[in-house]
Every structure is written in structure tokens, then in C-alpha cells.
């Protein structure tokens, strides 16, 4: 049994909140550069150039890339041989978020109650997903999720008869309806299978995978590429002003499902799709 003190967790979460909001991930930066070079439309090219410059300014001046520093989603992979000491795990995560958002000059965007809407003033509580896995490590992934794109996400319980064509139609419908709203070029997280709530979880989890890595299953890897091509044929383009790059990637995650069902969730994410991770 390996002991990890909550103070280590607090510090890690604090740092990850700041890192994810200030620094664009390398896979996405590369996709920006490729898109800028490949766009035939001048305005589309100019937009990609602005997004590249924005990431450079944020990095050089240690400031958030986007003013919507998100609701903080935290994925934990807890090794079953880890013993957390010194306090409660969820409290430690929230304390890390509190410190990260206050000390990192990040925007506090969370309201305590969805109807009453009073701001909690420290961006807590985080949405925390915990998975117990073999081993004695603790992996923390922080995903600050902006709501311009979150609001454009949808879920649908398809019929088994709808099959892969039904999945494709639904993903395209969601992207079309989102149009310019979620700050395209977007990254499309798709969860297929499981139950109602698991498909949504898978769609969010799909956004954690680097965009230059395809699904390990060749069928879904091909489907990711096919969907990306279809989406980039819509013409929405960077910021919705017209162009090829409507999406930078489609990431699909799947799970077994019931004989009567085919749940599909589409979690739309903006061009920055921020996430940072650390293993303790």
C-alpha cells in the first residue's frame, strides 16, 4: 500500500488548472498550423493565424487562452494499492481547483444552483469522475470545459436498426446545428454504446485523447476519419465564416450496450480543447 498525502493532490490539481488554461497542447497547435497552410479561403487562413498568435501570447504572458476558463472536470485513475491520507479525496480536488482558479487569475464561472444561479466565487465544485484501476499510482486529468461548446452537445437513444448510418447522421446533425457557436474548428467527442449516462461520459472522455491518435479498433478509427471528412465538407469553417476546417478531429469511445439500444452522445469541444494530466 502506497500512501499519497492530500496536499500533493491539492498542489497537482492547482497546477493542472493553470497549465490547462494557459498552454495549448502540442497536438492541437500542430493541427492549427496544418489548417492554416491548407485553407484556401483568406478569412479562414487569417482566423487560424489569429488562433496561433493567441496561443503564443497566452504562453508567453502566462494568461488564459480563453476568458471562459470552464467548469472544471477532473478524471481520476486511482490505483487500488494507493492509500490517500490527510483528508478527503474530493475535498482535496476542490481545494486544488479553488487555489488554481484564484491564484491563476482564472474566471469563476460556476453557480451553486442551476435555477437560483449564485456564483460560488471559486469555481468549485468540480465534476469528478473516479476510476479504480490496478497499481499504486494516481493519475489526475484536469479538463476545464467551456460552455460555448458544452451547450452545443447532444445525446440520442438510437434504435439498433439505425446502425452506423444513424450514428453518422446524428453526429453531422449536431455539428450542423452548432454551426459557428462553439468556436470552430471544433473537436468532436463521440460516445457510442453503454447506457444513457455512460454514452455521455464516453463522449467527454473521448476529448482527452490526443487528436493525432485514432481509436485502437480499426473500424472506429476509420469511422473517425470518415466523420471528420464529412464534417469538413459542411463548409462551416473556422469561426463559422466558411472554410474546410470545421473540425480538427473526431474522437470516438465505445462500450458494450443492451440488445435494444444504441445510445450516442456527441460532446462538442472548442478549438483549444484544454486538458492537462499528472501521475502521482
Amino acid at each position: 500500500m502506497r500512501e499519497i498525502h492530500v496536499n500533493e493532490i491539492i498542489n497537482a490539481v492547482r497546477d493542472l488548472c493553470i497549465e490547462a488554461n494557459y498552454y495549448l497542447n502540442e497536438d492541437i497547435k500542430n493541427a492549427f498550423l496544418k489548417s492554416r497552410d491548407e485553407e484556401s479561403f483568406k478569412l479562414a487562413k487569417d482566423i487560424m493565424d489569429i488562433l496561433i498568435k493567441n496561443a503564443e501570447i497566452a504562453k508567453n504572458e502566462n494568461m488564459p487562452m480563453c476568458q471562459d476558463t470552464g467548469m472544471t472536470v477532473v478524471f481520476l485513475e486511482v490505483g487500488q494499492d494507493v492509500h490517500i491520507v490527510g483528508g478527503n479525496l474530493n475535498d482535496a480536488i476542490n481545494e486544488g481547483v479553488r487555489r488554481g482558479y484564484i491564484e491563476g487569475y482564472l474566471r469563476k464561472s460556476v453557480v451553486k444552483d442551476p435555477i437560483d444561479r449564485e456564483n460560488t466565487k471559486d469555481n468549485t465544485p468540480a465534476v469528478i469522475w473516479t476510476n479504480i484501476i490496478p497499481g499504486d499510482k494516481l493519475k489526475i486529468t484536469v479538463v476545464p470545459k467551456g460552455f460555448g461548446s458544452e451547450n452545443m452537445s447532444q445525446i440520442k437513444m438510437l434504435k439498433p436498426a439505425d446502425g452506423v448510418e444513424g450514428v453518422k447522421d446524428f453526429v453531422l446533425k449536431v455539428v450542423k446545428e452548432a454551426g459557428p457557436n462553439p468556436c470552430p474548428p471544433i473537436i468532436v467527442g463521440v460516445g457510442i454504446g453503454g447506457t444513457f449516462e455512460l454514452s455521455a461520459y464516453l463522449a467527454k472522455k473521448a476529448l482527452l485523447r490526443p487528436i493525432d491518435k485514432r481509436n485502437e479498433n480499426p473500424f472506429y478509427a476509420k469511422l473517425e476519419e470518415e466523420l471528420l471528412n464529412l464534417i469538413n465538407g459542411l463548409g462551416i469553417g473556422p469561426q463559422g465564416f466558411g472554410g474546410r476546417t470545421t473540425a480538427l478531429a473526431v474522437n470516438i469511445e465505445t462500450f458494450a450496450t443492451h440488445i435494444a439500444g444504441l445510445p450516442v452522445a456527441v460532446n462538442i469541444s472548442c478549438h483549444a480543447t484544454r486538458h492537462a494530466e499528472k501521475v502521482l
Partner: peptide, 11 residues
């Protein structure tokens, strides 16, 4: 439209 996500540049 301002450029969505280009918030550091806009600042």
C-alpha cells in the same frame, strides 16, 4: 463577431 477563443490577443 470577435474571434471566439482568441481572448489573450483580444485583451
Amino acid at each position: 463577431a470577435a474571434i471566439g477563443g482568441a481572448a489573450a490577443l483580444t485583451a
